[in-house]
Design a protein around this nucleic acid. Sequence first.
DNA 1: CCCTTTTATTTGGATAGCGCATTAAAACGT
DNA 2: ACGTTTTAATGCGCTATCCAAATAAAAGGG
Lengths: 415, 415
Amino acid sequence: MPADGAAMKTADPELMRAINRFLVMDAIRRSGTISRVEISERTELSPTTVSAITAALLEDGLIVPRQVAPTPDQVRGRPRIMLELNPAAASVCGAKLAPNKITIAVTNFQADVLGTVSIPIRVDRQPASVILDLVEDGVRSCIEATGLQVEDINSLCLGVPGIVERASGICRYSPIFSERDLKLGLDLQDRLKVPTTVDSDVNLITLAEQWFGHGRDLSDFLVVSIEHTIGLGIIHGGELFRGANGLSPDLGDLIVSPNGSIGNGSLPGRLSGIASTTAILSTAADLARGTPQEKLLRGTRGMDHAVSLAQGGDRRIAGIFEEAGRALGIAIANLITLFAPPKVILAGSALQAGELLLAPLRDAVQAATPETISGVTEIVVHESSDDTWARGAAALTLRDLYGAPWGTTGPAKKR
Amino acid sequence: MPADGAAMKTADPELMRAINRFLVMDAIRRSGTISRVEISERTELSPTTVSAITAALLEDGLIVPRQVAPTPDQVRGRPRIMLELNPAAASVCGAKLAPNKITIAVTNFQADVLGTVSIPIRVDRQPASVILDLVEDGVRSCIEATGLQVEDINSLCLGVPGIVERASGICRYSPIFSERDLKLGLDLQDRLKVPTTVDSDVNLITLAEQWFGHGRDLSDFLVVSIEHTIGLGIIHGGELFRGANGLSPDLGDLIVSPNGSIGNGSLPGRLSGIASTTAILSTAADLARGTPQEKLLRGTRGMDHAVSLAQGGDRRIAGIFEEAGRALGIAIANLITLFAPPKVILAGSALQAGELLLAPLRDAVQAATPETISGVTEIVVHESSDDTWARGAAALTLRDLYGAPWGTTGPAKKR
DNA sequence: CCCTTTTATTTGGATAGCGCATTAAAACGT
DNA sequence: ACGTTTTAATGCGCTATCCAAATAAAAGGG
């Protein structure tokens, strides 16, 4: 009757091999090009095991040997045979939905971007079928532009803002869709006949940071993405952290100013109502009601206008950024209190505002972080390009192809 | 240059055995008494492996056979030999520090409480050496009261409120100590010559909930302990979640009412300033300044008085509870937003206030939880006794003796 | 031209888990 | 009372894994 709450995998030789195989793949990926001895040193696997595993990987075509021995320090002895990921082993496609843009990219097995397509179109509040049509077309043309066929693509990864259940490929809620509980994964899979995963857009950038960016060699950090929604990506213990149901948290739903708002029936003050690009721009536009600025602020380039207005001396617009920065800072401080990460990475289009947003943000973090852990966390800004999202999508997908036996990266701590 | 950020254990037969051995131990613990076949069914390990592992465990004296076959449903065939944990395999001691009480308990290998000692003494703001003297004496007398010697104790676990680095046994900050960065673990280990671990008190109760309480068979839940400090324990994916440095988060440091307080230099409004028992009682006492109630409210039984005053119709005292409940509710709603746990368990002495605190708390959670995940989380109350803490300390320690290969429980999800 | 050095592979030994068949132990049935 | 039936636990053989030591391979140095 006890019904094992969390059924866990039993250990057998197969799991053993899967673990070590992943360790080897991970070592190769991290180094780009590496010899067997070095793999053995880094993974602390015996040379025998490394040789056996690399042999299997070569057999499977996942890695390729490279004759040149580009290490000038090692001159004597039998030259090391360098190994690297076989770029042609797989091709993956990543697509990211944003309210005013669809970004699509194709990468190879090394997460090199082979080609991108960016569709600047306002998908906001279109029916889901229309948006998926656009995605499908974009994916097809992006794939063909790189000289590949759709059948050559091993996996497709879709990133959307909002709340996503990765396991089922269901988008519970997204500001992009008016519908709820959309089975995006299955839908796209039916359309393109390519295995498809769906995840929160912020998880894409989080994975990208872990693999290629500021999060390299860090086993704990946070990513806060400030765009139409405010997303949170968490790497903890080397793994992507997900909510209990496998869904990604939405930072914008945090309450940051509860005062006097709960009791009287009005909605509590959520972060998304203060610090999202939507909130910032609509507040600014309301301020400018009736002036010629209003229309500009409500347009697609609204953020640019708001920033230049504030930089041009408009105290009220600057005040909006300031308040947004403060609210974000407090939310981030609360996250620091909970997670104590060594690094917090900020990303997203709202960062165009630069110090207008960042200065009050940093001040608020400073003031609101409990002194017991102040100073442990560094806040960095990452200007994300389309490539970043694409490589994140690739990372998210390639992990599966690498055969990671656990959810993301790293099973457990050291011994 | 790549410097593998999170070095991870390689898989070898030894790890394999450790994993399966732990699975078997865990199955035995969960059932109390269980036969080999049932272990095989639950763990999905082959009967052969179960037999081999149980043989080793019997050899090591960690488990014992029990002749009776108490299953009346199974009558035919060879009776199953029931196995259970050997109570005498180990004895552990748990100690919990609170501002006005030291609680100590000794348990056996089954986490049965053999004896407890409770010292109602105000340790608040005593120098650490004095407090540790009290702990040492209490531990010695508690052990001897159970008929054991100090040398028989395999492990000691100390729970303190505040911020604790379990790995190093250092207490970074605690309201109990005026000093910072106390090496409590090493200190007690020197005094008693018993391996000692230190952890946040809330982690003790969290583990206890997972092993014996509401958290049984749940792989994700939160525990919020409302006492002198407001602690947070997190079980995620079957594991105790710790901050990046292995330190436990302190919920009391969360900011819940930032309005107008950051900019003007005053301290931001932390949850501990609104909803801890200290805050509640001191606010109530300030309200009652000059009246005969004030002294009672500041006394050790202050919470009892505050509750009866509020229940007796004192609107202002009731209002304090209400505000505390609301603030807690908002903080909990934010946690639900982040973690989406199926259950949140409330514990701690502030729960004496009952519905005075809980009604506004539930309302605030209801109002502040984003609708996308409303309804997924159930809030339950657990009245914790001294035994609970003690068994939590036992659980925390016994895990190590069980030989858990990973931090706590469960290495990774299924496949 | 042979030897040293370094790297990769191969061989032998040990341990793990699993499946099948065997033994062990009890209760039922005639 | 004895054999049959049923279920539990355990040998035995198999394969797969890892590791350590030995072997083969490829270069440079004397």
